[in-house]
Design a protein around this nucleic acid. Sequence first.
DNA 1: GGGCAAACGGAGCATGGTTCCGTCAACGAC
DNA 2: GTCGTTGACGGAACCATGCTCCGTTTGCCC
Lengths: 195, 195
Amino acid sequence: MADSGSGSGSPAPRKRADARRNEQTLLEAAAAAFVASGVDAPVRDIATRAGVGVATIYRHFPTRADLVVAVYRHQVEACAEAGPELLANNESAHTALVRWIDLFVDFLVTKHGLAEALQSDNAAFATLHAYFIERLMPVCAELLAAAAAAGEIRPDIEALELMVGVGNLCIGANKDLRYDARRMVELLLAGLRLH
Amino acid sequence: MADSGSGSGSPAPRKRADARRNEQTLLEAAAAAFVASGVDAPVRDIATRAGVGVATIYRHFPTRADLVVAVYRHQVEACAEAGPELLANNESAHTALVRWIDLFVDFLVTKHGLAEALQSDNAAFATLHAYFIERLMPVCAELLAAAAAAGEIRPDIEALELMVGVGNLCIGANKDLRYDARRMVELLLAGLRLH
DNA sequence: GGGCAAACGGAGCATGGTTCCGTCAACGAC
DNA sequence: GTCGTTGACGGAACCATGCTCCGTTTGCCC
């Protein structure tokens, strides 16, 4: 869904040139603003960076989540696609799982405020949460199932639960030097293990 | 510290009667508001509940953290005091640790929004974080040290890290029925264990 | 070139935190 | 009991931020 590109002959009424240009500009401006101030950078800031009015943002990206998703879509896709690949290229399913979670954590930790936003009860981020779950949970579930089938981990854990837990552990990863999110995730995964 | 009562002859210039009354009223109003709307209930709401002006809140509790700490101080104290007690009354230090973390988690998940606030980068909550760490970290550290000394858990884990991790896992505990914070914490503790 | 609808921009509204200042009343002195 | 001092009060006002509305502009097609 959301085929906003050069699809086949479907009802895609090709937007005006300025609109397409602005959308692109906005994506770049948003990416820059996210790096500078986190994913909840003020709308006005993003608009200013892009040299457009605030309404233009809302026209292209009705909710903040839409904007965030658009900015990070490539990376989420990459993460999703890495799942089956890791499973195929590793002896142990558990190793594949660990490596995949590593990717996931890396992604979250390097995007200022993303982990926080994912768990925020702010309505503006609801569909962001949904997108992550929808796209990544099946991948995670597959890895979990493989590892469980190999008898390497406890079989009684849901993909959603693990992802939310890992996401939570990534919150504040760059705030306090004494807190190492990666270590905590490692611990969580160790707790999963059937030695 | 913060001896705002009938201390000895120290520089405690005994506040005016109406001020003391208001402070008490505010604490009750805040507690109610926190239950109803979480720890970031609008200041105006709390003021209205207490029947006072907003400035009165700021006069008594300069930052939101001060208010939250005042409301939950008793329970935090109780949690802190339970540490040594659990250690004394349990055969295994690991059991004591698990039980204590249980108390901690219970506290966090039953206070709507507390776990979130603890990790929020909102400046208004900074001293809340500090208070929790200051009061509870030593207790946690003691439990950890005992369990480590008994060879029951990995010795390479800091109290602060564990507490932040556990706190993080409690975020969103009451939001998604499919996410069980307690289970995740259990997993984390299992990962700590030296089987 | 002209008309029309898409797209735009920014003023404006709502919400929520925080401060400022004129008023009120508690309390100690007498 | 009265009075003056000053601690405490209340709420209007200010600022930041999300979101919408509407008059204006401009790309596109004929």
